[in-house]
Every structure is written in C-alpha cells, then in structure tokens.
C-alpha cells in the first residue's frame, strides 16, 4: 500500500501561494478556513526562505492520539482523516499538531469552536453520499486517481505529493543534481563529514 506524503522543497518554493489558492478552490472550504499556508522566514533578508505547510499526515499522528472522541482514522494510503460527526471542537488536535493544521470555524457563542477542518490530502472523508462528502470535507481526488491539487498546481514543483517512495526519489534526484553536500536542506556544519548528496547518489 502506498504511504501518501507531502514534501515541500524549500529551495524551490517562491511563496506564490498557488497551492493555497488551489486548495481553497478544490475543496471549497468555508470562509475563514485555509487548509494550506505558506510560511516565510526572514522575509526580505538574504537568507529568506519559504515553505508551504498543511497537514502532513503523520505516521504517528499526535492529533489522533489526543482526540477525546477518537474521531481520526488512517486510510490504507496513510492519509489521516477525521469524522466531523464525532468531532466536538475541543481543540486538542490543534494543541498537539506540529504543523498548526487543524482549524475551527467560530460559529458558536463564547468563541466556542465549530467542527475541526484540516487538509484531507484531497481524499474527502466519511459520508453517506458524494454530495455530503464534498459539502463536509471537500473533494475526493484520490478516489478519482488524482493527487492533491495543491501539489499538482505548484509551478516550481517545490510542493510534491504522492507515495513517500516516489517523493523521496524525486527529491533524491534533485539533491544529486544540485550536488549539495548537505542534501539541499541546510548549511549543515557536518556537510563535509556526511555528504548527503554522495549518499543519495549511491543509495539508488
């Protein structure tokens, strides 16, 4: 079975927010909710860098571990989905999530949270009908054999989505091609000691 993953290559991301827009469009998410965001560190400085973030569909998902209603589940493709019928909007998934993925529409009195919403890897969610699924969770492109629209639309192919192995292979090729000793991820002071590009090229 596939293990679906996102990866954002920070050396390619040009902060165009195309993925954010694509996601909004594909899933028709409600006002105020934005499942994907682009974070820029040190904007305007020489070491500026951007990265697109949404739910990363963690293997050992913290949201899943803390949810009082136990409404999360993992699909066979490794996608973390949740059941909005069970969610009570307690916010615990947000406290635990490393990526700030869960969001809440504020629909009730006293700032009480509505039902949690997050990226579904364009895989919809539990529902009786297709219409209900679209209404609650947005599109289910996975069921149509398509990958998430954000990654499909990414103009620089910084954002990759797909089976972990495929994503890793593409990234490994880039690392080899760039010849970065430190795997294109960081100015690792250890770079000369552990030459990641070399490793990547020789691991196949």
């Amino acid at each position: 079975m596939a293990q679906m993953k996102f990866m954002c290559d920070a050396e390619r991301c040009i902060e165009c927010n195309g993925c954010v827009t694509a996601c909004k469009n594909a899933n028709d998410v409600e006002w105020g909710i934005q499942r994907r965001r682009v974070v820029t560190l040190n904007d305007g400085e020489a070491d500026e860098m951007s990265i697109s973030v949404a739910c990363m569909h963690c293997d050992d998902a913290p949201c899943m571990a803390v949810c009082p209603t136990d409404c999360f589940y993992k699909t066979d493709d490794g996608i973390v989905l949740h059941d909005k019928d069970l969610c009570i909007g307690c916010g615990y998934c947000l406290y635990a999530c490393p990526f700030g993925a869960p969001q809440f529409p504020q629909q009730d009195a006293f700032g009480e949270r509505g039902k949690m919403d997050k990226c579904t890897f364009c895989a919809g969610g539990p529902a009786e009908s297709k219409e209900e699924e679209y209404e609650k969770y947005g599109s289910n492109r996975i069921a149509e054999g398509k990958l998430p629209l954000c990654a499909e639309m990414c103009s620089t192919k910084a954002l990759l989505a797909g089976d972990a192995q495929d994503v890793a292979d593409i990234f490994r090729q880039r690392v080899v091609h760039r010849g970065h000793k430190d795997g294109a991820w960081s100015n690792n002071p250890q770079a000369s000691a552990d030459n990641l590009a070399y490793d990547a090229a020789h691991k196949g």
């Binding site: 927010n17 965001r37 040190n42 970065h180 294109a184 100015n187």
Partner: peptide, 28 residues
C-alpha cells in the same frame, strides 16, 4: 545558489519564535 537553510533558521523554527520578518499567508 540561493542560500540553503542555516542552523540559525532551524533554531528559530524549533524555538517557535517568529520575529518581525516572519510571514504566514493564513489570514488570522
């Protein structure tokens, strides 16, 4: 190449500090 990500940036990410030149495209 455009500079890669420095150890300093990782520290910044890890500490959760955002700083004046931090941008997040999500509205609120």
């Amino acid at each position: 190449a455009a500079p890669g990500i420095t150890a300093d940036q990782w520290r910044q990410v890890r500490s959760g500090e955002t700083g004046p030149n931090y941008r997040d495209s999500r509205a609120d």
